[in-house]
């Protein structure tokens, strides 16, 4: 059960970065607006209503769309050869080197601590409406799952299937996806924490909070 937190922290400390590939969300003519090495910021403001740093314009059918950064980081690897060119959907345009925040470190380390309910297929996933509304109401994790309970709706080939929970009974401590997202096979969907393990998890979180400097 015990994890080697020191090792994990050391691992992240040695390389607290993640490279995010920014691809064209759809076809269009690209015009870069960010520069190599530029600092980017994700959405800000109390309600995250201020868009992040402008990365590039993608114009399709006379509609120049502003594509902004969704997280903080540093711009690298701008593919300048594509400037002013028509690109296909999914074309790699640049990367953002993102330094993991304390919350993200906690999320990542928790996947080692919590019991993970992974995606059985590459598919779209939704939380059952009751679960989602319960989560909205309560700030603290409180929804208890035991094997056989309805856990998640998987939308596959236009059909919705209710997935039953299998694994250690416990509380949904962490939801790793946004409702309606396409999730790759085996990627974590839910992080479950058995009740008698709660204290330990909180201790881990506390330790990371104390020991991780940003």
């Amino acid at each position: 059960m015990d994890i080697n937190l020191n090792d994990l922290l050391r691992h992240y400390r040695s390389n607290p970065y993640e490279e995010h590939e920014i691809r064209a969300p759809h076809t269009g003519v690209v015009k870069f607006r960010a520069e190599e090495g530029q600092q980017t910021f994700g959405p800000s403001g109390k309600w995250l209503h201020k868009p992040g740093t402008l990365l590039f314009l993608l114009e399709r059918e006379n509609n120049p769309k502003r594509i902004t950064a969704s997280f903080n980081g540093e711009v690298a690897g701008i593919r300048h050869e594509l400037e002013g060119c028509f690109v296909e959907a999914g074309t790699l345009l640049l990367t953002i080197r993102h330094r993991l925040s304390k919350e993200e470190i906690i999320d990542r380390i928790l996947t080692e601590v919590l019991s993970i309910f992974p995606a059985p297929q590459r598919a779209r996933y939704y939380l059952p409406p009751e679960t989602a509304s319960q989560m909205d109401k309560k700030a603290e994790p409180s929804i208890f799952l035991k094997p056989g309970d309805d856990a998640i709706i998987m939308s596959l080939m236009k059909r919705d299937t209710m997935l039953k929970y299998e694994g250690t009974p416990g509380i949904i401590y962490k939801v790793y996806f946004h409702s309606g997202d396409m999730v790759e096979r085996d990627a974590p969907l839910l992080g479950i924490c058995p009740p008698d393990n709660l204290k330990y998890v909180q201790k881990v979180i506390q330790r990371i909070k104390n020991e991780w400097e940003e």
Partner: peptide, 20 residues
């Protein structure tokens, strides 16, 4: 009277496609 598309402000939330 214009041949162009616009993006719905809720596109990110509801997946609205650009509108002609």
């Amino acid at each position: 009277n214009e041949d162009r598309t616009v993006t719905c402000p809720n596109a990110a939330k509801y997946g609205c496609m650009d509108l002609w």
